[in-house]
Nucleic acid binder design. Sequence first.
DNA 1: CATGAATGAGTATTCATTCAT
DNA 2: TATGAATGAATACTCATTCAT
Lengths: 204, 204, 204, 204
Amino acid sequence: MAVHSTASKRKRAPDKRDRILKAAIKVFAQNGFYATRVSEIAKAAGVADGTIYLYFKNKDDVLITIFEEGIGRLLTILREVAESDEPFENRVTSIIELQLGLLEEQRDLAEVITVNLRQSSRLLKQYAAPLFMQYIEVIAGVVREGQEAGAFRQDLNPRVVARSLFGAIDAILLTWALGEGDPPALRKAGTHCASLFLEGLRKR
Amino acid sequence: MAVHSTASKRKRAPDKRDRILKAAIKVFAQNGFYATRVSEIAKAAGVADGTIYLYFKNKDDVLITIFEEGIGRLLTILREVAESDEPFENRVTSIIELQLGLLEEQRDLAEVITVNLRQSSRLLKQYAAPLFMQYIEVIAGVVREGQEAGAFRQDLNPRVVARSLFGAIDAILLTWALGEGDPPALRKAGTHCASLFLEGLRKR
Amino acid sequence: MAVHSTASKRKRAPDKRDRILKAAIKVFAQNGFYATRVSEIAKAAGVADGTIYLYFKNKDDVLITIFEEGIGRLLTILREVAESDEPFENRVTSIIELQLGLLEEQRDLAEVITVNLRQSSRLLKQYAAPLFMQYIEVIAGVVREGQEAGAFRQDLNPRVVARSLFGAIDAILLTWALGEGDPPALRKAGTHCASLFLEGLRKR
Amino acid sequence: MAVHSTASKRKRAPDKRDRILKAAIKVFAQNGFYATRVSEIAKAAGVADGTIYLYFKNKDDVLITIFEEGIGRLLTILREVAESDEPFENRVTSIIELQLGLLEEQRDLAEVITVNLRQSSRLLKQYAAPLFMQYIEVIAGVVREGQEAGAFRQDLNPRVVARSLFGAIDAILLTWALGEGDPPALRKAGTHCASLFLEGLRKR
DNA sequence: CATGAATGAGTATTCATTCAT
DNA sequence: TATGAATGAATACTCATTCAT
């Protein structure tokens, strides 16, 4: 009764929170935040409605958590790429591929983030906007460094470039998500997009 | 009593529909579609709640109308530019400036369209997606023609370029809308964006 | 300009009130009082919505008027029959045939009265119940007189007989109205009903 | 702790559905279906508005359920009487007394059924009419058998007799319900009604 | 910790009624 | 008188949240 059962006794369901988040990402992606009922999340997660409130303050909090942890995860990886010592061109390409690649595996997360980033509920904007800006800032950082290092032309505002790049990737993902979306097509689109931006950025 | 005053003969205000649409654009931009109450639209339009239902089937119909007429207006102007006989570079620049310029004057419309295009309500997607695709197609057309005419490099998929361009503009507008957004800043961002894409597209 | 046009000048539409009432009877019979929109009455009468309020205080008033004038008309005829000097058996038969016959021609009025008599809106009950009671009372009067004259058995409460008779006719009409309802069938049902009641009433 | 108390183990009240139905019967009888607010039903049942929707699809569904279960209950008992091996006269008398007697104890149910049976909402008629016809048919069956067995005169259409009997009882109940309605008066009216019909039906 | 029945605040929509023309 | 566009009060129903078990 002792020893070997220790682990399984402590917090039997430390994964419930995760299951709820994963389920929420799925249904938010499918139906949007407002059209999603809390009971749908619960059902998708295989828990009771009330259980969700043991892990989250309310429905908003679920979305906010997805934002924070989701974008957070993206940011972490993004920063690694951005701060690597690869040539700047490679870093830009990696950023694009990474996002597309990562999101290809986490398509729902992408959908939730890009779709709901724009929901205009004051509360959500409050949380989402700064995270979005951080995201942009990391990309802008790479551009800026590239400019300083003489790899990129210097007459472009790094933030504008970063926003453009983000928007381009986002739009490609959106169209891909709206259509049938086969992975190879997405990858090829990424290559073209990278080429377009790198030529646009190249110092002459 | 003067020259027959045609204008003064109208019964009530025949512009109610317009007032409602304008008001809706304003409040949707401010609070988002879902968070906006029909009564708020009515109040902003200076009409009674019920009046809205004399002109629109329901709340959804108001948004759909904004989409259709708003994007429709954009499309018309866009097509003129796209089919002009200016050099291709100029057309691309015009497309960007035109959109940013037009929307600068109609910031709320921009917000509504870009923000809500992605809302996942099935109904709305049904209406919005085809319009969005048309939009992309017009831009892609210019790119394609430019490629065929030898003005642009030919190794890029025109649709991917179009999506990237759309996304870039969209993201710039979004950031601008999220921030304080002064018009000069937007204009300058547009110039940089244009330069970035034109260099990226240039045949070498 | 004078003489011959006098009549047509005075109150051009003294029939509007009638048209509205007739239209109301039709649509009330079809859809019931609550499910009928004032605009439907107006449309059926070929007048504008507002016109109804020139002749009636409100929607309730339209129904009340139908009750009063409709039952009033029935009562007048009924009283003539009830107070005739025919044999009592004939009077009872006439009452049945008259109602069925009259209503056959005014099926909608019948429907409105019998259906809506039972609507439980306080206001309507207030108006309808006394009229209903008068109606019953006229029939009861015939029974009572018949009893006093020795034509009918005297052990039955005249009011109970009157209610039973009214109810029987009402139910026959209702079933007839719910079904296909061809006039001959209704007439035959009336004959059977009369025979049933007359045998039941006969003094032995 | 005592003998296992089965009853006390139930979560909440499992009788909510019944309480809602009973409350609905009461308020429908009082105010009519259309004039009754859902919140009034809820208040009368001592539950929250939303609770009603846990047990019924909508307001219509509450009324339909009352019809079905109410008339259903009546039908069950009616059939027992109709198919008993009592003399036919007794069966007819029982049918009358049973209805009046049963309804005397369930005055509100009577009111709801008889009043609203005729409401012309298409939906309701759809549900109510067939039940009504079944009801008539059971009574007609007794008459028909009585005729075949030689107990009743054979020149009357059993269905017409059944409708007349139903209508008579209905009208008596209606008057009783509209007035103060003391039970003894109702019982006496029933006796008179039975006598009237039995004499009317008697073979001579 | 987990449940899910119950709650009741919140809102789109309808429609009787008004009134400027 | 007659019109019908405009009004806004009124209400069925939904769904996030709670809490007794």
